[in-house]
Amino acid sequence: MSQLRTSPNPDLARVAADGYELAVRYGHLVITGVPYVNSRKEVRLGTLVSDMSSISGDVTASPVQQHVAMWAGEHPCDASGVPLRYLQHSSNEQVLGPGLTVNHSFSSKPAEGYRDYHHKLTTYVSMIERHAQEIDSNVSARTHRFVESDDADSPFQYPDTASGRVGITNVARKLQLSRVGIFGVGGTGGYILDQVAKTPVREIAIFDDDTFLQHNAFRAPGAPSAEELRALPKKVHYFAGIYSRMHRGIVPHDFAISEETVGQVGHFDFAFICMDPGTPKRLLVEHLERHGIPFIDVGMGVELVDDALTGLLRVTTSTPQKRDHVRDKRRISFADGGKDQVYSSNIQIADLNAMNALLAVIRWKKLFGFYAADPTSEHYATYAISGNHITNEDKE
């Protein structure tokens, strides 16, 4: 979510100019103070809510297909207390965010569809409030009160209408963490960044001292130009430049992890480790454990066998509640030099990097309640390419 400016949106500017209490909340357009009649023939005030799926960047488009609206309050009735049947769609409580719970949804669509959001919002308001005005001619939704939208401090550059469109804004809020770290953005780490940048994490700190080279382009998300590759950017600056277009809190750190620098990484609500085995990884893991920070370490071992590739992808989860498996079962390698056998060829393929990243991100989202999970969920999972099998181990 972000502050939706009315200046490039004449339809929203007209809604505000007309005096309606318009705000943007949790990726939805909200008009408060709408008079309606309840079943007891009492005049009350309700809230009209519309998703913002017909928007590109911060500019609205015609909501021709998005004709459904939501309502917080009792079901509106006519002046006799009879429910407005022509509005009825469904009735069930849905939390869109703290302080914004809707009770009903309406479905009313003109033959030609709604021209813009002004047409949609004011049409619904008119259908509801005119019955209240039959009882009290002084009531109106045009209060001309100032209403401040609550999303001006959003981590996003433009509203998250995807969550609002499917009604999961309150679920997405579970990922509103203060700071998430991604260590290594070469292959898998780049895809993890791609996914985390689409969540409301306040700050995403990315760490890598390597340069983004031509071979990296073939296993990273996106499509860098030849000019970008010739500039030899640091990986963290290259990715920060891309994802800062969408997410405000991308902070690049272009130093390697060492005894001298590990103390500079700071605190995190969560961390992803996408580094090769070795002393730097051991130092980082010890730092995270010492500060009680949960993390996921990823890895892949891909080999060329009989002119075809095979191997495993790995996701190791470590939380303050369960860390013993990391060393007792050697779930994370800290070996220097030749690295473990599964890493010896260091073959990386973009689709496997992406899948390794997605498995890690899904596990992270389960930890924070975005996805439902078994309370004793796995802390070690592998995906076997040849058999298409996922094996889950090390449960609590």
Rank of each mutant, 00 (worst) to 15 (best):
S105A: 15
V43K: 01
E129V: 02
D78C: 13
Q65S: 13
D150G: 11
G97I: 10
A69H: 04
K41S: 12
P98L: 05
H67S: 15
H28A: 10
A79L: 11
G113N: 15
F146W: 11
Y158W: 09
S54F: 08
D150V: 12
D116L: 05
Y117E: 04
R85Y: 03
L84G: 03
H144Y: 15
D58N: 10
H119V: 02
K120M: 15
R130M: 05
S90F: 10
H144L: 02
R145K: 13
V49H: 00
H144K: 12
E134D: 02
R44Y: 01
N38C: 08
E148D: 14
K120T: 08
E74N: 15
S108W: 12
Q94D: 10
P63H: 13
H28S: 09
T60M: 00
T47H: 03
F156R: 13
L29H: 08
S50E: 05
V59K: 09
A69E: 04
S50P: 00
P110R: 15
G33S: 04
Y117F: 14
H89D: 14
F106Y: 09
Q157S: 09
V30L: 08
S91K: 10
M52I: 09
L45R: 08
H118I: 01
S62L: 02
R40V: 09
E134C: 00
Q66P: 00
Q94H: 15
S50R: 02
V139C: 01
G33I: 02
M127E: 07
C77L: 11
S50Y: 01
V82G: 05
S54L: 04
P110N: 14
S154W: 05
H119R: 05
F106N: 06
L87G: 07
R85S: 08
V82I: 08
V64R: 15
V49C: 02
T122D: 06
G99N: 03
D153Y: 10
D58G: 06
H119K: 04
S50C: 14
P63K: 13
H131L: 00
A72N: 10
L100W: 03
N38I: 07
V34I: 15
P83Y: 05
V30A: 07
S39E: 14
P98D: 15
A61D: 12
S105N: 14
I55F: 10
K109F: 09
M127P: 01
T122Q: 06
Q88T: 08
S105V: 14
S137E: 11
Y114W: 15
T143A: 13
S108F: 14
M52G: 10
P110L: 12
A141C: 07
